[in-house]
Design a protein around this nucleic acid. Sequence first.
DNA 1: ATTATTGCAAAAAATTTGCAAAAGC
DNA 2: GCTTTTGCAAATTTTTTGCAATAAT
Lengths: 145, 145
Amino acid sequence: MKSAKTVLRQYLKNNGLLASKQREQVLNVFLKTEKHLTVDDLYELVRKKNPRIGLATVYRAMRVICDAGLAREADFGDGSKRFEHKYKHQHHHHLVCLKCGRVIEVMSPEIEKLQQKLTKKHNFTPVRDTMKIFGTCRKCKRKGE
Amino acid sequence: MKSAKTVLRQYLKNNGLLASKQREQVLNVFLKTEKHLTVDDLYELVRKKNPRIGLATVYRAMRVICDAGLAREADFGDGSKRFEHKYKHQHHHHLVCLKCGRVIEVMSPEIEKLQQKLTKKHNFTPVRDTMKIFGTCRKCKRKGE
DNA sequence: ATTATTGCAAAAAATTTGCAAAAGC
DNA sequence: GCTTTTGCAAATTTTTTGCAATAAT
């Protein structure tokens, strides 16, 4: 199976875009963590490798990486958009802890099935979906309040 | 059953806040539409009644109205936050059309049940949740592409 | 009379854009 | 060599905040 890096290169070539050093650097730090990072988080991380990179470049790189099908935007209701992996990652939903901010990824084929039923009933063609449950996670519950 | 206006007044009194003209005006325009409006939408609407109101006042009023349990923030992925009714409205999910922006509200007790099962399994205490399916609505499909 | 709220303008925070210099093909 | 991309700074957009004037109880 193609590596994410190969997928990006192919996408760039197919669309007449250039394979710049910065785009690969941003992809690398993005791939290296499973956390849901903001552009600013990614910017700080890439800067360790390449201190001369600009924040706008990271914004632009992440847009390309999303367009290439490798990342997806996810909004957890704190002011900034975050990104999550899309390549070789199954579709999933999120439990978001309101106390510690932890995000737990969960799958539920049964819910997917009901979603299908729901869209069919409304003659709605689904493209993507998102489900988030906000609350208190196991660990924070143990700590009390 | 208490009217939304009464709920707001009670909330204000209980919390040592004042029942200002502006707060009631914002609540009125919010109640009058079932659409998911942004603060700016609400601002434009209230201005018709009270041209001297400030945008910051609308932001502050909507926060109070949410705190009073009458509204809830909903994010549809366009840059601004939007609000929806919470009082006397059952919990529901959204089908969001990517072509025309229409938002269809749907209910699914079966999905709710599966959500419960999911949170229980992770020992997660749910507080609120949101599910959105993005895609193409019936009408836009008929129009073709 | 006392305290909270308003309107305005300024500040923040997140993201986008214009453009000359640099890099990729 | 031609075109795209970068870095920087300035511009935009959304939301928040400080504060003197005003309104509510």
